[in-house]
Nucleic acid binder design. Sequence first.
DNA 1: CATGAATGAGAATTCATTCAT
DNA 2: TATGAATGAATTCTCATTCAT
Lengths: 200, 200, 200, 200
Amino acid sequence: MAYRRTALMEARLAADRDRILVAACDVVREAGFAGAKILAVAAGAGVSTGSVYRHFPSKSALFAEMLREVCAREYAVAAAVAVTAEPPVQRLGDVVEVFAHRSLLGGRLAYAVIVEPMDPEVDQVRLDARRELSALFAGLIDEGIRAGELPVQNPYTGGAAIIGAVLEGLVRPLQDGALDPDDLVAELRAFCVRAVGGAA
Amino acid sequence: MAYRRTALMEARLAADRDRILVAACDVVREAGFAGAKILAVAAGAGVSTGSVYRHFPSKSALFAEMLREVCAREYAVAAAVAVTAEPPVQRLGDVVEVFAHRSLLGGRLAYAVIVEPMDPEVDQVRLDARRELSALFAGLIDEGIRAGELPVQNPYTGGAAIIGAVLEGLVRPLQDGALDPDDLVAELRAFCVRAVGGAA
Amino acid sequence: MAYRRTALMEARLAADRDRILVAACDVVREAGFAGAKILAVAAGAGVSTGSVYRHFPSKSALFAEMLREVCAREYAVAAAVAVTAEPPVQRLGDVVEVFAHRSLLGGRLAYAVIVEPMDPEVDQVRLDARRELSALFAGLIDEGIRAGELPVQNPYTGGAAIIGAVLEGLVRPLQDGALDPDDLVAELRAFCVRAVGGAA
Amino acid sequence: MAYRRTALMEARLAADRDRILVAACDVVREAGFAGAKILAVAAGAGVSTGSVYRHFPSKSALFAEMLREVCAREYAVAAAVAVTAEPPVQRLGDVVEVFAHRSLLGGRLAYAVIVEPMDPEVDQVRLDARRELSALFAGLIDEGIRAGELPVQNPYTGGAAIIGAVLEGLVRPLQDGALDPDDLVAELRAFCVRAVGGAA
DNA sequence: CATGAATGAGAATTCATTCAT
DNA sequence: TATGAATGAATTCTCATTCAT
């Protein structure tokens, strides 16, 4: 048999797929989901539109996958910070900090990921991501309540509110470029810790 | 024979314009900006697409204006609550409550107004509205700091974060229909008051 | 109110719709369903593709409607011939003759209408048309049997077979241009009458 | 180092070619020409699309060849039945029976082969096949006329009409699944024999 | 030589905007 | 003046064919 799929070919294939996902990410960062056209993604990845469809069955599937990857990455980082040996409130602050910091770097992407509607398939991924992340915060709030560090409250509401506070808190500074990023992150951390009833 | 615009005609024209804006609002409430088509707005207002273009130069201009109106109304309500004789933190809590409550009633509209991107012209209006509303909260935080009720902090960051916290805090419950709305609003008020350092 | 839909406008609208249907017909006649593109139909009707979609919700719907019209017309003609005062077998021959004659004039259209697959919506119309027409023949065969003019046989099989015989019998001559059309029609009439057991 | 094509290689090549033709046949049987994609053929044959193009210069050529083979096979069977020692009309009936029976088994394939348009190259093959088959019937009709068994008539028209009658006569029953297949074949035989003027 | 990933022309459909009536 | 039919650019997705490996 004169043909064998070589490791090199596999690698290239995977690389193409990744480049497409990265390009999708870039496009959303630049233009949001609203401006996300397959042609732009293809151009960004240096492939044809047809190739995009070799790797992903539809536009929705492509962006859903991209979202899933981005969210999984963010969640993993946040989750890692959430299980250190520190006291719950300290950890909650750390997670806020890390989440805010990374969202700051991600620019519009984080925002699009969390809030910009696109289509049902993508929206579902977004919803799941929000749920997961707010559950992470809720878990920490719950631990804090049990440890007597935090007042009794609905942890899920708090978890969701934290996500909103951080993202919205980042939007203007991102656009105005006013504040020092580190200060902003510190402010948001303090805001959120106080919000759940922790000592600043 | 000179063409004369009578008062009656003026009134009718103005009425049409208003009906178009109301229809635009309804459409966004039902379908978000993503599903906002001129034809739907025209149908909702009982006029032709051509008439829509008689009153507004473009789709963007129409929705920008609609957004401006809605935001102005919300701002007015919030601003009225912000200037009572109560102490600053109490007033901040009241504004949060009123904002949360009205957003809850507005359903998807509030969300679209605050976060769903549409196009640059509309986005600018949204940005302005966010700025104004967060400035309102910032003013109250500032007053609280001056009155010694609140710790020193960046009031603008806090103002923005409050908006995000309330909206995101409302999203899931809205979709899951889980919590009692009044409880949710109360939770968010407590969250925000604590967040700025006020005694819950 | 400065606007009224005038009779002229109605007429133009209807004329456009008709021109689109006629163009669809022409396109199928030239290129069959396989070559039937909306752009070609639009061009043929002298309108834009968008206009086609104003009159018909989809490509399928357009061609289904066209097919329905053509078939209804053919059926009406055939049905009229089927109910004269002549004896059943005579009438059956007359219907064959009229059907063959008109199919001959319609060229590829008749063929496409009866056999060329397109998509489920259109196929359904075609199926119905075939059923109706073969039922017409079946009815005549049945009458003939009851009148003792024809031998006992399955009338539906005969009805369908007649349609096939006529269409297929027309195909080659149409392409080769060999035979005199009237002779051909006469031959097919005799073929079908004999086929059901009538005296030639 | 000279490249030498061995007998084994030749055999493999030929086997591939055959498998591709068989797969093409299967695909048409399942999905008609409309659903006939090169990828599906390649998959069915267990080869790559590239290999398909090694054996056939184009999609048209592949399906044209497939059609040619299928038709040749059918023709051979029919021709064998056409030259027995029986009287012409008996033989004509036998050929109809065998043709109808095999078409019934072939399902959509026979139909696609005879009537479904695809592209000019394939259509030409189909036309030739129809010509050949109807010539076979025409020959039998001619013999019948000469033998005084059949009335004078145009044998070519009759040949074509028989093909149409059989195929169309098979279509509905195939879809409705109503009649017993053997009865249907017998009906069509009687229909065709009568049609040419033979005693049923 | 066989493979199958990549290509890219093309087709259906949508909708903001215009303009004849 | 108000209307709403017409326009056509834009976008997603498909699939025959090619060619690097």
